[in-house]
Nucleic acid binder design. Sequence first.
RNA 1: GUGCCUGUAGCUCAAUGGAUAGAGCGCUGGACUCCGGAUCCAGAGGUUGCGGGUUCGACUCCCGCCAGGCACGCCA
Length: 546
Amino acid sequence: MIIAEAYERIKNILEEMGVKEIPPFRVEIAPEGFGELATNAAFLVSRELKRPPRELGEVIAKKLAEDPLFDKCEVAGPGFVNLWISWDCYANVLKKIIEEDANYGKHVSKGERVQFEFASVNPTGPITVGHGRQAVIGDVLANLFEWYGYEVQREMYINDAGRQIDLLAYSLWVRYNEVLGVEGLEIPEDGYKGEYLIDLAKKLVGEVGDSYREVWNEDAKAFFRDYALHAMLSSMRSTLRSIGVEFDNYFSESSLIEDGTVREVLEILSEKGYLYEKDGAIWFKVSEFIDESDKVLVRSDGSPTYFLTDIAYHLNKFRRGFSRVFDIWGSDHHGHEPRMRAAMKALGIPDGFFNVVFHQYVTLKKGGEVVKMSTRRGEFVTLDELVEAVGVDAVRYFFSMIDANTHLNFDIDLAMKKSEENPVYYVQYSHARIRSIFRKASEKGFSFEPGRGLEKLGNEKERALALQLSIFPRVLEEAANAFATNKLTGYLETLASKFHSFYTENLVLDPENPEVSHGRLNLCRATEVVMKNAFKLLGVSAPERM
RNA sequence: GUGCCUGUAGCUCAAUGGAUAGAGCGCUGGACUCCGGAUCCAGAGGUUGCGGGUUCGACUCCCGCCAGGCACGCCA
C-alpha cells in the first residue's frame, strides 16, 4: 500500500524529469541501515537521460523530500534512493487494515474467470505424500488468485477411461479371489499390488459373497471397474478433504468420449490437415508446430490415447469460458506440455490460455534412507499417514513453504518426532500471543478502540512492524504472479519475527501510559488481522492458544 | 544421446540484474521479579558445483563442463 503510493510519486517525478518510457523500476523494503524503502529508479533512467545514476538519484531524493509522505530522503551508494516514511502515513495504513479486517489484502476484481486443475492423479491407489504436495500447492495458488482479483474454479480431473483402470479392476478381482481362497491367479507385472486392494477385496467379499469367484466376463469387468473406481475416488476425496482441499468440480475423462468431444477434436484436426494414418493408428502432426516427433491420438485398436482425451478436455475448458487455465503437473509430465501447446495452436485456442505450473517431486527420507515410492508396487507413504503423524497445519505449511520447482526433501523422522521444530509453530505462536494480549487487556480494563492512540507510536520496532503489515497486498501479488506459495510463508515468518521483536522491547498494556497502550493494541490488532488472512490463504489454523 | 528441473552455511531452504548473499534448525554466549521463554539479543559458520562471457553491477542472463532428479511409449 505504502509501496504503491511511493511508486506513484516516483513515477511522477520521473515524468517531470523528462523520462518518456517509464522503466520497470522497483520500490522495496530497504536493507538494514538504508532507510525504510529504497528504489533503484535512478539506475534505470540513467541511460535515457544520459546522466550518471548518482546525480539523478539526488534530483529524485530532493523532490521526494518535499512530499509529506516521507520524513527523509537520501541518495546512497551508486544511486539508490532511500526513504523514511512519516508515522502519519503508517498510522493511516494501520487504521485501514483494522477497518478492512478479513478483506485486507484483497485486490479489486480483474473480471476474469480462471481455473486451477490439480490433484488429477490416477484413481488407482491411496494419495501419497507427493500427491499431497500438488494438492496443497494447487489449493493455495487458487486461494492466492482469488485474493488477487480472479474468479477461480478448482477442478479435479478423473482419469477413469484408460487402461490403468482396467488393470486396477483386474488386480482387485485377483485379490478378491485370493480372499476367497482361490489359488493360482496372479496380478500382472504392471498391475497394482498394494495392500489397500486386499482390504478392499475383503470388504467386497462381505458385500457380494462369492458371486464373482473365478468369473471374469464383461459383467464382472464392469462391476470391478465401477467398484474399484468408486472406492478409490471416495478415499481420495476424503483424504484431500482432511487437509482442507475441496473442489468446485470433478471432471470425468470418459465423459469426453461419451459426449463426442473426443470425436469432434479428431474432426477439427482432420479438417485442418493435421492428422494422418500409419500402422493402423491415427497420428497428430506435432512436428508441424514444434521440434518433436508426431504422436498417436487413436491406437490401432481404435481406443483414444491420453493425449487425445487431454486435448478434448482442454477444448472443453476453453468452451467453458475461462480466460486462462492453470494445470498443476508433476515434473514427470513436463514432456507433455509442448505437445499440448501444439494441440492448442492447432485448435486455434489463443496463446496464454493454457498454462502449466510444474512441481518437483518429494523425496522421502526415513531413518536417513531414501524411501522409494511406487503406487504399483504398493510401496509408499500415504498422505493419511503423514497427516496423522504431524497434523494438517504442519503438512500444509511444509508443502507451501518450499518453491514448487525445488525438489523437496521430507525427513519423516524429523517431521514425526520433532514437529515442534516446524516453522509453522513459530508463526502460529505469534498469533496466539496476540490473542493472549487481548485477553489480558480486558482483565486490565482496556477495551479495544480502533485508531485510538496510534499517533503516540513511532519507535523503531513499531515502524518496522507497520511497514511489514503495509506490504501484505504486494506480497500476495508477487506470490500469485510467480506461482510461489513460499513467498507467503516467508512473509509470515518475517512478520512474526517483527512482531516478536516489537513485543520484547515494548510493553503493550501499560496502565501508566493508556494512550500508548491503546496505540499498541491497535498495532497488535492489525498484526492479528494480517496473520489471520495469511493463515486463511494457506489453509492453516490461527490458534487462540497453543 | 536429446530435452526440462535442481546444485547457495553442517542440515532444510530464501534471495523479480542491485547495496554487506539471508532465514529456520543445529552450535556458542547472553536476556526484564512486568502482557505467554514455543520468545528475544549477539556470535561462529559461504570461492553461491567448476570454467569462461555479457555490463556500471551476476546466485540470477549466455556458452561449455561436472553431479543429482525427471522425461523421451499405440502408459498416464
